[in-house]
């Protein structure tokens, strides 16, 4: 157990795919949304919108259109890109920052949920057309990622296994790479993306 509560929360947060049918309180959901507001955002542009859902029937239908949703969430925050704002800002639609921001918001909300004693998980395996129809999303919003919320139940599917043991060291290289420079072409990057 680390004496640093932030590091401890980062280390102990896990995607939970078995949830009880205990509802998630409105106040808790709002606390998670408030935390999302503090997620880092490229250029502080805030080109994303969050759709909070805790109506049981809507949740049930969202699960029916989301093959990657193994859990039965009691609340969901859907992170959307607002393409009208992207266009108004003049940002390229291929800007990687747009998707990085989805990730920063998601992780911030997952950690907020964890700190409130809630179980959480990410789901991106859904067809956008299906989610759009269930939520009657306005055309400018594209659904990108569900943060699923609930209370952990015992049991449930095992975590997804990886191709080998992962340690932090196995993910990290230090400083400059030795050897002759590689000729690998840099993927094209729009000027507006560099931040």
């Amino acid at each position: 157990m680390s004496s640093n509560p932030v590091l401890e929360a980062i280390r102990t947060r896990r995607v939970v795919r078995a949830l009880t049918d205990e509802p998630v309180g409105r106040a808790q959901l709002e606390d998670i949304l408030k935390a999302g507001r503090w997620a880092p955002s490229g250029g502080n542009r805030r080109l994303h919108r969050y759709v909070a859902v805790h109506d049981p029937l809507t949740l049930r239908l969202l699960r029916m259109v989301s093959p990657g949703m193994l859990q039965k969430p009691q609340a969901i925050v859907l992170i959307c890109i607002d393409w009208q704002r992207v266009g108004a800002y003049g940002l390229s639609s291929t800007s990687t920052g747009l998707y990085v921001d989805v990730g920063t918001a998601a992780q911030t909300m997952l950690l907020a949920a964890h700190s409130l004693g809630l179980a959480s998980g990410i789901v991106t395996s859904f067809p956008k057309a299906g989610v759009r129809a269930v939520l009657n999303l306005p055309a400018q919003l594209s659904p990108e990622l569900f943060v699923c919320l609930g209370h952990a139940a015992p049991g449930g599917p095992a975590p997804m296994r990886t191709w080998g043991k992962i340690t932090w060291q196995s993910l990290v290289d230090w400083e400059r790479f030795p050897g002759t420079p590689s000729a690998a072409p840099e993927p094209a990057q729009a000027e507006s993306e560099r931040l």
Binding site: M64, V65, S66, G68, L70, S125, F126, P127, A129, G130
Partner: peptide, 27 residues
């Protein structure tokens, strides 16, 4: 519900890694 799952999975599998296909069918 099952019909919806299968149709939606057909769409997601267009862009997902092949290894997800058996997983979806088993789900």
């Amino acid at each position: 519900e099952l019909l919806s799952f299968l149709v939606m999975a057909a769409r997601t599998m267009v862009g997902e890694p092949n290894e997800y296909a058996p997983l979806r069918l088993l789900t």
